[in-house]
Design a protein around this nucleic acid. Structure first.
Lengths: 136, 136
DNA sequence: GTTTACATTGACGTCAACGTAAACATATGG
DNA sequence: CCATATGTTTACGTTGACGTCAATGTAAAC
């Protein structure tokens, strides 16, 4: 919430449970651009927000290059109307990609839930058997 | 649908747009187990179904090792009730993982849609400006 | 002032997930 | 009979995403 404060590399790495190496690596790949106080990096709230997006992208299975492109969508470029239209197209493409992923997920969840139900049934069946056996 | 027929490595690779190399690689990693007619691999409908699961897992960003574990959940082991309970736990864990992923996706979609709406607004604003300028 | 903790930049290592190339078998049509 | 297509194994190459290590700097704490 505090938009003015700044974070050290350790603070950020602890908060999001990533290594400092990873943060420097993301910077190398142009995903974050922290300031420098002399040598040491100072991460702003904006950098922190970008890191959140990076990690979300990773959880969704995107490569760092793809995440870079997604981050580009979040950084206002506002050059020409043509550019903005192009960006709008990329937004929509990304949304489509995400929706396809969500369908995959829903399918997987349904499969798994079906499996759950079936397994539960099998277990209760076996339990009934065991109870009968126990009673004999 | 035809449960009795069998597929060559080329047929499968073409149908799912993966290389034959990848299919052999998946076999190496124990994800598929096609039969052999002499040297050549013969893929059954079951192998084909497993391949579908593999590719879906990949689209969702899972590693081959994780996919292997997921596939294990699909192959009935029915040893003891204890085993089945353990499997049931894994199912539920997997479902939780997928649900978390879906939340990430929903968040990303909402962000993108917000961005879309904002961008559309900016574009229409600029267009209005341009029209005024054109008329002068 | 010195230890201790945390920071930096290379450079090289590693693991996964294949690609690529070589060298060979099998079969099918012209 | 030979070419072409498709199959095989073995082995090395490649890319992405960091980990690890060395050599060094800096800053707070005692």
């Amino acid at each position: 919430m505090d938009h003015s404060r700044t974070y050290s590399i350790r603070q950020l790495s602890k908060e999001f449970d990533v290594t400092a190496r990873a943060l420097r690596f993301y910077e190398d790949k142009g995903l974050i651009h922290p300031e420098r106080k002399g040598q040491t990096r100072l991460y702003s709230a904006r950098d922190r927000a970008r890191l959140q997006l990076i990690l979300r992208g990773k959880r969704l299975g995107f490569s760092l290059i793809e995440i870079h492109e997604i981050l580009d969508l979040y950084t206002p470029k506002d050059h020409g109307v043509a550019q903005m239209r192009a960006t709008l197209g990329k937004y929509r493409g990304q949304i489509e990609t995400l929706k396809r992923q969500r369908e995959d997920i829903d399918a997987a969840i349904h499969d798994m839930q079906d499996g759950c139900v079936w397994l539960e049934g099998e277990i209760t069946k076996l339990e009934a058997e065991n109870i009968k056996t126990d009673n004999v």
